[in-house]
Structure formats: C-alpha cells, structure tokens
Design a protein around this nucleic acid. Structure first.
Length: 412
DNA sequence: TCTGGGGTCCTAGGACCC
DNA sequence: TCTGGGGTCCTAGGACCC
C-alpha cells in the first residue's frame, strides 16, 4: 500500500506578494495584471474570492466584481525562488518528490514511517517545516493514490491536512460534485449533468461499459477515478519520473488586435528565438513546427509543418512559422494572438549531409554565445529577432532555396 | 464574462504502405 | 474492379490543468 502526499500552496502568488508587502494582508488582491488590461487572473486572495474573483477570470471582469481590489502584475522570479525553497523542504521528507507545477507537489511517503512516524504526524511536521522556512501556508492531502491525495488537499484548504484512510476512498469521494475530479472540466461536467450524474456517487453506480460507450477511453478512466484509482493517464505514472518536455511553445496576445504584417512577423521572430533558445537549453531538436493564429473574433487556427530533419535553430523555426503565417493568414484580418510551437522533440537532430552539418554547427555555436549574453546581460542584450531577420534577408538574396550556404555568419 | 501562457493528452480523418 | 484491413505518420482541433 502506497502513501502519497499531495501538497498545494495556498493562494501562492498572492501569499508571496504579501511577504514582500505586508500591507496587502487581509485585502482583496489580484495577481495577473492591471484591471483594464487584456488577460486573466493568475491568483486571487481569499478576500477577493468573496467577490467571485478567481483564477482564469478576465481581469476586466474581476475589476467589475471587485473594483476596490489591488491589481498586481506579479513577480515570476520570486515565485520560482519560493517554489525552489518548498522543493528543498520536501526533499528532506522523501527522496521521491515531484513538483507537478510551481505551487504543488506529490511525495511518495511509503516507507518513511520509521523516520517520520505515521502519515498524519509526518504531514504535520512537513506543514510546520514549510511554514517555518517560507512563512507560507500550504494544504496537504494524504491517500493511497495520487488522485485521492489531490482531491483531499483541495478539501483541506486553506491551511489544512486531510488523510483519507485506505479503504475509505469511495466513501470520501461519493458526496463530492463530479467537478472535483481532476480532469472533469466545464464540458465534461455539463455532459455528465445531462446524463443525470452530479455527484461522484452517481458516477460510481454506473457500469464501465456505459461510461466507455458514452465517453470513450476517458469514460473508462472516469469509472476508475470514481472509485479512487489512479486509472490510466497521467495519474498512473510514477511519482518523480521527470521526463523531457514533449513540446515547447511561446505565444503572444497583442495589446490591440493588428493586421500589420511588420508587427506580426517581428513578433513571430521574437517567439522563434525564444523557442529556439529553450530547445538549446534542453538539448532537444524539433521536427514539427506549428503556427497559431487567433483572430479578433477569437477563432483560432493552427497550421503545422514537419521537417525532414530536426532543428533547434532560430532561423529555421522563424522561416517555417513565417511561411505558415504568410500562406494561412486571411489578408487584412485583425490578429489577436500569434504563437510558435515546436513538437516531435528528440535529443538529436538526425541525419544531415556534411555541408549542412557544418553550417548547422556554426549556427549552434553562435546561438549558444547569444544565449550566454542574454543570461549575463538580460533579454535585451541581443536584440530579439533582428539579427535573425537580417540574416534571413541576406540569405534570401544569396540563396533563395533557404538552404544553409556559405554566408551569412550569424550576427550577435 | 470579452476571454493569458505554458503545457499534456485524446480524437478523428486522410495519406500511404503492405 | 465498386472495394479489405491493419499500421503508422501527419494534421487540426479541443478539453483540461495550473
């Protein structure tokens, strides 16, 4: 029998902000941007939640509901720093720790009893230690599966510990709304309601065949979840098994919708550089590049292209995403968002002829140098995209095929 | 309600191959 | 000729999570 902890920080971003500005305590605080900006709430203080403000709510709506709230842009580097501190504490409690996101983690506590005592005791020690080293509150769920531990930490909020005893899983879940099951979102909830299923108990009563017929592969997993099992999908994976990312992407929503190709393509250049850089950081190469385009009316298209080799080079990423943009954009249509996505990632670039290989090596060295400059002097040290764009223009003159030629040498 | 940005996983259809 | 069947790859879209 496994013992799993799920630890979730309470109102994480807001709580970190309060550490740096104690005057925020007890007030309605919204992290995510200014009240009039495009964007959504990243985190809301419990005070703000009383007015119906919650994460993912548009900032403008949050303002309508709670005009007296304090709106903050937030400090991502501080959040990462505190997330790291939490991780250090967790590492002292179990060798098997997995940060599931910036503010939550799973710990496999199986076999820690001799050292830390029974689960509830260990959880209280952990809760204390987190508070002591970060001054932040968290909630902890304890169960035999990841799924139930996660639901338990949710029920324990704020600042609580909840243990679901082995054998009690179904009973614990039964009275809860189906929406509490991770993976059941707005759409699935509605479909379940349409079938008369509102609580987990209703779900557990149904037979698997019915759920599979109605909801496919997902329905089958759902049947297991209703009984507290880590049935299928992500929850079934080992805790702490950290794998390479499967995709890397960056996107940007314009402050105002635009049909200016210069603006859109220079944004594509910036996004391409960011994607290329992340690929190099991970030592990964992408074979599929994808453009994302969202229009004024929010209709969104994605257009992908698979290369015959894998790449981590900014220019190649830009070339493809720009081509996809030029061939798929409805001319004149106002664009709200553009994105660049790299998929089919692998740790090597695959077969390439020697000439291309040589060119590719030189680019990689130059880009590595640019990355280090940015590390040292900040993101603006190497003008984003313009170097690549310049190189691209030269290249198109000399070499219309866009294949690596003798020049240009990358400018950094 | 005027809707971010970074991900994961699933579905479904078509191409292509044997 | 009126039509198979499985496997794999690619593309597009969508649900969901924090």
């Amino acid at each position: 029998m496994r013992t799993v902890f799920h630890l979730d920080m309470d109102a994480f971003f807001v709580s970190v902000e309060e550490l740096f500005d104690p005057s925020l305590k007890g007030k309605p605080v919204v992290v995510g941007g200014q009240a009039h900006e495009r964007g959504v709430v990243s985190a809301a203080s419990y005070e703000a939640r009383k007015y119906g403000v919650h994460s993912a709510l548009p900032l403008r709506t949050a303002y309508q509901r709670c005009p007296q709230a304090i709106f903050l842009d937030g400090h991502p580097t501080r959040y990462h720093e505190y997330s790291g501190r939490v991780f250090e504490v967790l590492n002292g409690f179990s060798p098997v720790v997995e940060m599931a996101s910036i503010d939550e983690a799973y710990l496999d506590m199986t076999g820690t009893e001799r050292l830390l005592g029974p689960p509830l005791h260990a959880a209280h020690l952990l809760h204390e230690k987190v508070k002591q080293t970060t001054q932040l509150n968290c909630s902890i769920g304890i169960a035999a599966s990841r799924l139930v531990a996660k639901v338990a930490s949710d029920q324990a909020k704020p600042n609580g510990v909840l243990w679901v005893l082995p054998g009690q899983e179904a009973g614990f879940l039964a009275p809860l709304d189906v929406r509490r099951i991770p993976g059941v979102g707005k759409v699935t909830e509605k479909r379940l309601h349409a079938c008369g299923i509102r609580q987990v108990a209703d779900l557990a009563r149904l037979d698997e065949a019915f759920l599979e017929e109605k909801f496919g592969k997902w329905g089958l997993a759902l049947a297991g979840k209703a009984r507290g099992l880590d049935a299928g999908g992500w929850f079934d994976s080992e805790i702490g098994a950290q794998e390479d990312p499967k995709s890397i992407s960056h996107e940007h929503t314009f402050t105002e919708d635009t049909a200016d190709t210069g603006q859109i393509e220079s944004t594509l250049a910036q996004l391409s550089v960011m994607v290329g850089r992340r690929l190099r950081e991970h030592g990964l190469y992408a074979r599929t590049l994808q453009l994302k385009l969202r229009y004024k009316d929010f209709t969104t298209i994605t257009r992908a292209h698979t290369l015959d080799h894998a790449t981590q080079l900014d220019i190649e990423i830009l070339q493809k995403s720009r081509l996809l943009f030029r061939t798929n954009w409805k001319p004149g249509a106002l664009v709200r968002l553009v994105g660049v996505h790299a998929g089919s990632l692998a740790p090597a670039e695959g077969q390439m002829n020697l000439l291309d290989q040589d060119q590719s090596d030189r680019w990689r060295k130059a880009l590595g140098a640019a990355d280090r400059l940015r590390d040292k002097f900040g993101e603006k040290a190497v003008s984003l995209g313009s170097a690549v764009q310049g190189a691209y223009r030269e290249r198109t003159h000399e070499n219309p095929a866009g294949l690596p030629g003798k020049r240009p040498e990358p400018r950094t």
